[in-house]
């Protein structure tokens, strides 16, 4: 059995404030797992056990749901997450060069985390910003019309 971790009190409060807005507790599962990543490193088995207890549902179901969604990290990730779009409009406007430059500057491949633990690089599907393709996000910040020669500056900004 997984030992559940202590949920951050702010997270508990966040959930409790929202329970009355839904007919069932488990409706808050996905938002809770997303919010949890502000306070906990990632959706570890212990964290999922604690969320299951809070929402009064089986931990196995929490894990099943968590495994479906890409924004819920099931493994430890870097301090900053870089999401770079590799879908069609970004492809047509040169995202492949941007991604190649990101790999080069970070010294890690798509799907990996830099050795110093600062960045995790992932490719994502259309970010609904195709009018300014190619685009990428560093944490919550969107960068538009990205050129490979801007990568250095963008990474420095996040540091």
């Amino acid at each position: 059995m997984t030992v559940s971790v202590q949920l951050h009190p702010e997270l508990r409060k966040w959930v409790e404030e929202r329970l009355s807005r839904y007919p069932t507790r488990r409706s808050l599962l996905v938002p809770t797992l997303i919010q949890a990543q502000k306070y906990h490193d990632y959706a570890s088995p212990g964290l999922m056990q604690a969320v299951a207890d809070l929402l009064q549902m089986p931990a196995s179901e929490v894990m099943s749901v968590a495994s479906f969604y890409t924004l819920i990290a099931k493994h430890p990730v870097g301090k900053h997450i870089i999401q770079v779009c590799h879908n069609v409009s970004c492809y047509l406007r040169g995202c492949d060069e941007v991604i190649a430059r990101l790999e080069e500057r970070l010294g890690c491949k798509v799907g990996e985390t830099t050795e110093d633990g600062k960045f995790t690089l992932i490719t994502v599907e259309c970010l609904a910003a195709c009018g300014s393709a190619p685009v990428m996000m560093v944490d919550e910040k969107l960068y538009e019309n990205v050129r490979p020669d801007q990568i250095g500056r963008i990474l420095a900004e996040a540091n």
Partner: peptide, 27 residues
């Protein structure tokens, strides 16, 4: 009115998958 967040799944835009997701399930 309540703002509910998705978590990175294209299929959740399909109306009935959206409902399953809103209810706390896989999309």
């Amino acid at each position: 009115l309540t703002v509910h967040t998705g978590a990175g799944s294209y299929e959740c835009g399909e109306e009935t998958a959206l409902l399953t997701s809103l209810e706390g399930g896989r999309g």
